[in-house]
Design a binder for these strands. Sequence first.
DNA 1: AGGAGTTTTATAAAAATTACAAATACGAAA
DNA 2: TTTCGTATTTGTAATTTTTATAAAACTCCT
Lengths: 151, 151
Amino acid sequence: MLRNQEMLVTAAENLKEHGIKNTPQRQVILAYLMTSHEHPSIEMIYEHVRQSGFSVCLATVYNTLELLQANKLITEVAPDNDGHMRYDYLDKPHYHVICVSCNKIVDVFDDSFKQLEKKAAVETGYQIYNSQYEVYGLCPACQAKQQAAHE
Amino acid sequence: MLRNQEMLVTAAENLKEHGIKNTPQRQVILAYLMTSHEHPSIEMIYEHVRQSGFSVCLATVYNTLELLQANKLITEVAPDNDGHMRYDYLDKPHYHVICVSCNKIVDVFDDSFKQLEKKAAVETGYQIYNSQYEVYGLCPACQAKQQAAHE
DNA sequence: AGGAGTTTTATAAAAATTACAAATACGAAA
DNA sequence: TTTCGTATTTGTAATTTTTATAAAACTCCT
C-alpha cells in the first residue's frame, strides 16, 4: 500500500498549505476525497477511516468536513436518492453526472458551466463566489438492468 | 385575498392534470411553491399551511413534497447554509442564485445550462433525465451589510 | 348521499446532527 | 528533544430531523 502512504503525505501537504493543523483523521479523510472518485457520504467516510486502521467518531467526520469545506478544499455535491449528502474534492472545475438508481457519480471535466457565473452576476447583482452543475440520469449499468427487466 | 383563492384553484387544476387526488393540504403546498418565490424549506412550508388556516402535520408535508417531486411538479433546490433543503416549483427551465449569508434564492430564467445535458450524455453514456445549476454568492443586501460593517 | 380506497393526523420510533466536557495529540519554542 | 499552551478527538447525551404506523377523516366516483 505505498500508494496510500503517498496520498496521505500529499493530503498532509495540502492541509499545511491551507494552514490547517495536521491530524491522522484529517489526512485520511482528505486523501480519501482526493483519490477515490466515489463522492462518499458521511457514513462512507466514517467507515473508510476506520477500515484504514485509524480511530474516528462521527463528530470528527462532521467537524472535518465542515473545516475542509470552509477552506474550499472540498464541496458538497448533492444528496443521493437515499437522502445522504455526498462530498467531493474540489479539483479542477467539473460537474457531476448522478445515477438516480444506483447513485453512482461521475465527474466531467468541462468548465463551460462556469461561464454562466458572469451572466448570473449581471442579472441578479449578487457577488458570485462559485457555482455548481449537476446532471441526473441513468448510468449504463442501470440502463442494462432496466433492459433485462423488460424482457 | 382573492389572489390566494385563485391560486388554490390553479393548483387544484394542476394536481388534477397530473392525476393526483386533491386535498386542501396539497393545494396549499403546491400553490405556495408556485407563487411565492421563497424556495421554502420543509419547516417554512409547514408554517405557511398552518398560517393559511389549514391543519397539517409534518408527515403530510414530507409525503406531499415526495409526491409532487415524483410527479415532477417541484424539485429540490439545494440545502441552505443551515442545512435545510429548499424546494421550488418546476416552471420553465431556470437556475438558482443563492446567497450564502441570508439564504435568499433568486430565479434566473436562462436555459443555456440545459444544453450541457447532451454533452454529458455523450461523455458518460448516462441516459439523462434532467439537470440543475446553482450559483452561490452574496446578495446585494448582504453586500451592503458587509460594507457597513467594514467602516 | 353511500362507500371503497386514500390521505391526514397524532404519536412513536428511528436516524441524523449537534453539543459538551474530559482526554489526547499537535507543533511551536526553548 | 522535551515542555507547554492550544486545538482536536472522543464518547456520550441531547437535539433535531425523518420515517413508520394505525386510527380517524376525507375524496371522489357512482
